[in-house]
């Protein structure tokens, strides 16, 4: 049985995706940031699929210390219960902040949650993904287009805007996927970025305020159900030979921003390693 790890799996796209994978007979490990939400999500899935193999871990992935803690727990669980293999890691967790707010490290929260959390978790779970010759999928967004990386002020301390921070973090997602492919596609690991489209979730209503909350409340009504983008994640995992594309929308490849270059991908990768205090290793086995 193949194991899938999904972050931000208690609501919205993450929950719908977890449900789809359960339906396809995968072993699903979800991560959510509150115990109540995790219990509720698990109940929902079990009520549709009483035989489901689903377990949730609680972690506030915005904080690097929490990523490390939950990674320790996952390592133990996966070694004991999943043959030490992860077939797919879906870095779906994400959020919006109306204001400049920072994590314990002083990192801007959208950058930390939407990108660094995924960067750190992927690093920790890479050995298990390698065992399964697995796939890493980021929840990206078409809003990654039309923005450049603010290399001189990555945390947007000198001029914060919620949308700029969001778009940049989504550009980070696809740059990270690109960097992973450059490093590890020869080792049989593939990474993708998925554009879910406009989806009716609560992303813009959590821990935001005023304008962001209002705009998102109006905008999300035009969004599709999260079950629609969930198909794309399943599609990417169900293909026997890993698809060669990078960016997918509705199960099909889509054009991505011209900012997605090897240079930018490497620059972000190096910076993220520095900010997380880690060094991705070279994998030994080449295919």
């Amino acid at each position: 049985m193949k194991t899938v790890v999904i972050t931000g799996a208690t609501s919205g796209i993450g929950l719908a995706t977890a449900r789809k994978f359960v339906g396809k007979g995968y072993n699903v490990i979800g991560i959510g940031h509150s115990e109540t939400n995790c219990d509720r999500a698990k109940e929902k899935i079990l009520s549709d699929y009483p035989e489901a193999k689903i377990i949730y871990f609680v972690a506030n992935l915005m904080q690097l210390s929490e990523v490390k803690r939950v990674a320790d727990e996952l390592e133990k669980y996966i070694t004991a219960n999943c043959n030490g293999e992860i077939y797919a890691l879906i870095n779906n967790v994400g959020g919006v902040r109306s204001w400049y707010q920072t994590t314990a490290e002083g990192y801007e929260q959208q950058f930390a949650l939407n990108h660094l959390a995924s960067f750190m978790l992927t690093y920790r779970l890479l050995p298990y993904i390698e065992m399964a010759l697995g796939r890493v999928i980021m929840t990206c967004s078409n809003s990654h287009k039309g923005i450049k990386m603010h290399w001189e002020d990555i945390m947007l301390k000198d001029g914060y805007n919620p949308l700029t921070a969001y778009k940049q973090s989504k550009l980070c997602n696809i740059l990270f996927a690109e960097a992973l492919n450059e490093r590890y596609s020869n080792n049989g690991i593939r990474a993708y970025a998925v554009d879910p489209g406009l989806v009716n979730t609560d992303i813009g209503n959590k821990q935001t305020g005023g304008v962001v909350n209002l705009i998102w409340s109006l905008r999300k009504k035009h969004g599709v159900l999260p079950e629609i983008p969930a198909e794309t994640y399943v599609h990417l995992c169900e293909q026997k030979t890993a698809p060669k594309g990078l960016y997918y929308y509705l199960c099909r490849e889509r054009k991505f921003s011209r900012e997605v270059t090897e240079e930018n991908a490497n620059r972000l990768f190096d910076l993220s390693e520095k900010l997380c205090g880690i060094k991705y290793r070279d994998l030994v086995v080449e295919l």
Binding site: S98, W99, Y100, Q101, D158, G159, G209, V211
Partner: peptide, 28 residues
């Protein structure tokens, strides 16, 4: 707007809450 609690407090004050709220990075 430094904590989740502070933000919910600002939201509860409605209009006046958002008008008197300062941007953290700018204040710093």
């Amino acid at each position: 707007p430094t904590t989740e609690e502070a933000i919910s407090g600002i939201a509860a004050q409605g209009f006046w809450g958002s008008v008197t709220t300062n941007r953290l990075e700018q204040v710093a």
